[in-house]
C-alpha cells in the first residue's frame, strides 16, 4: 500500500461521541457515557460503522456528538449561554428518515459545513422517544443572531426539509432549564 493511502484525513476539530441510557437508579450525569473521541475522517467512519443505528436504540436513549471537551449538557460552560435548533420528528420521519437525518447532521458537524459559523457549533443530540424522536444542533452563543440563523438555514437545507411545511425552532438552554412540566420552551428564532 502506498504511504499516501495510510495517511488519515484530519478534521478541524476533535469530536466525542456520547451515549445516554435512562437508568432511574442512577443520576442523570452518570447515565451519560463517553464512547470515543476521534479527529480524522477515517476514524469517524470506523466509529460510525461500529455503533448501533440510532433507529435501533431503545426509547429513552440518546446519542450526542460534541466537540472534545464539551459535555452534552446545558450546564457546560460552552453550552450554557447557547441553545439548540430542534427538530421534533413526525412519526413518519422517525420511521423513514431518522438514520439519514442523523448521519447528515454528523457529516455537517465533522465536515464543518457551517462555514465561519462552525466555530459556534457545540454539538448535536438525537433523542429516541416513544412520543417522537428529536434531533438538535447545539450552538454556544445566543447573542450570535446572524450566525444562528445561518446555521439553521444551512442545516434545514442539508436535511432537505421543505421550507414552508416544516418550521424549525431555536430554543435557548436558559429557557429550557426553567420550563416546568411538558410545556416546550419558546422559540427564539425560526427558519
Amino acid at each position: 500500500i502506498s504511504p499516501e493511502l495510510l495517511i488519515k484525513h484530519p478534521l478541524q476539530n476533535s469530536w466525542t461521541l456520547w451515549f445516554y441510557k435512562n437508568d432511574k437508579q442512577k443520576q442523570w450525569e452518570e447515565n451519560q457515557r463517553e464512547i470515543s473521541t476521534f479527529d480524522t475522517v477515517e476514524d469517524f467512519w470506523a466509529l460510525y460503522n461500529h455503533i448501533e443505528a440510532a433507529s435501533r436504540l431503545q426509547s429513552g436513549c440518546d446519542y450526542s456528538l460534541f466537540k472534545a471537551g464539551i459535555k452534552p449538557m446545558w450546564e457546560d460552560t460552552k453550552n450554557k449561554s447557547g441553545g439548540r435548533w430542534l427538530i421534533n420528528l413526525t412519526r413518519q420521519q422517525c420511521i423513514n428518515d431518522l438514520d439519514s437525518y442523523w448521519l447528515e447532521t454528523l457529516l455537517c458537524l465533522v465536515g464543518e459545513a457551517f462555514d465561519e459559523q462552525s466555530d459556534d457549533i457545540c454539538g448535536t443530540v438525537v433523542q429516541i422517544r416513544t412520543k417522537g424522536d428529536k434531533l438538535a444542533v447545539w450552538t454556544g452563543d445566543l447573542r450570535n443572531n446572524d450566525g444562528i440563523l445561518k446555521i439553521g438555514m444551512k442545516y434545514k437545507e442539508r436535511l432537505g426539509l421543505p421550507n414552508k411545511v416544516c418550521v424549525m425552532g431555536y430554543q435557548a438552554h436558559a429557557d429550557s432549564m426553567v420550563i416546568c412540566g411538558s410545556m416546550p420552551a419558546q422559540n427564539r428564532f425560526t427558519v
Binding site: H9, P10, Q12, A46, N49, L107
Partner: peptide
C-alpha cells in the same frame, strides 16, 4: 485554513469494517 470537507468528500471514505 479551516479543514472543511463537503459531503461527497467525506462519504468516499465510508468503509465496511472487516470481519474479525
Amino acid at each position: 485554513g479551516k479543514k472543511a470537507y463537503d459531503r461527497s468528500f467525506l462519504v468516499q471514505f465510508q468503509w465496511e469494517p472487516p470481519c474479525v
